[in-house]
């Protein structure tokens, strides 16, 4: 093999660069291996995978709908819960204002019926049955309860009107209020009866419970104290004296009898009879003289 020439003159290079030359022809006749088919498939698959959007697992397809559904349920539950709380927040002050307005306007039979619900300390004492009071005509001075939104705004007006009606009745209002006063009296008596019945039943239940616990002699003087505490809200239509008697809790039977005697002296026979019945219910074994003034007059 001869050594190749190190230099080719410019003319020969130019001829080569023009195209057809023996070197180029010989180069094209060299055997050349084709690209292996496996390499073709590899490259083409790689190219296809590169532009193909990444496939997500099957469970990933459900994540978006599930997230939307969960969010919707959460939002709905929050909205419902918020709405209930708003109603409670809005209605509580309104009811409180209604109570206050009713307390200052006792002649309104509707509000009286609403607020005369005794708060019983004993959990097992059921509330008294609601009374079906006759619906009185709407008062002229005190307007009917407004919707919740307007009740707060109208409350001072009703308050002033009720006070004016009660404390300084004008001649024009007196005629209208006469019928309401009569209705209120009837309503008050009915409510007091219901309260009384409830108190009696509560006291009797309390007494039965004490007797079962103590199981001592019944004819002793020291009768066990009733555990039931008769505390309830003051009926706004009741008088101060009668309410003082009603609310008083007696631990001493003699003091109770003394008060009953005083009521009879004050010619409050009805109230005295009511207290006597309570006394008998509270202290059934307490001996009271047949001639005691506290006893209810036999009819």
């Amino acid at each position: 093999m001869t050594e190749p020439t190190d230099k080719v003159d410019e003319q020969q290079l130019d001829e080569y660069l023009k195209g057809d030359s023996s070197v180029s022809r010989q180069y094209r006749q060299l055997p050349g291996a084709d690209v292996p088919p496996s390499l073709d498939r590899l490259v083409l698959r790689q190219a296809e995978d590169a532009v193909k959007p990444p496939s997500r697992p099957t469970w990933m397809r459900w994540t978006a709908p599930l997230a939307v559904a969960a969010s919707a349920v959460l939002v709905v539950s929050i909205v419902i819960e918020t709405g209930v709380q708003d109603e409670t927040i809005v209605s509580a002050p309104v009811m409180q204002e209604k109570r206050e307005a009713a307390a200052e306007a006792p002649t309104d039979p509707i509000e009286t019926k609403t607020i005369e619900e005794p708060a019983y300390a004993s959990a097992d004492v059921p509330p008294p049955p609601k009374l079906d009071a006759p619906a009185p005509p709407p008062p002229a001075a005190a307007p009917a309860p407004a919707p919740e939104q307007s009740a707060r705004a109208e409350q001072p007006v009703a308050h002033v009107a009720a006070e004016a009606l009660l404390r300084e009745p004008t001649p024009a209002a007196q005629a209208n209020s006469a019928a309401f006063v009569a209705n209120a009296e009837r309503q008050k008596q009915a409510l007091e009866e219901a309260v009384r019945e409830q108190e009696l039943s509560a006291t009797q239940r309390a007494m039965r419970g004490d007797q079962a616990d103590v199981a001592g002699p019944r004819d002793t003087v020291e009768t066990p104290q009733p555990k039931a505490v008769l505390s309830y809200s003051r009926p706004i239509s009741a008088s101060a004296d009668s309410m003082a008697t009603l609310q008083k809790t007696y631990t001493d039977p003699e003091a109770w009898l003394k008060d009953i005697r005083q009521l009879r002296k004050d010619n409050k026979q009805e109230e005295a009879d009511r207290q006597w019945r309570r006394f008998v219910a509270a202290f059934p074994n307490y001996e009271v003289a047949e001639t005691d003034a506290a006893r209810e007059a036999k009819k």
């Binding site: 080719v8 020969q12 023996s22 010989q26």
Partner: peptide
């Protein structure tokens, strides 16, 4: 340089009549 070496390899196998055509 590459052309010179390759042409030299071809020149060994070419007949004298074709020598002049190798460029």
């Amino acid at each position: 340089y590459a052309l010179g070496k390759l042409r030299g390899a071809l020149r060994q196998h070419q007949s004298p009549t074709l020598q002049s055509s190798v460029s």
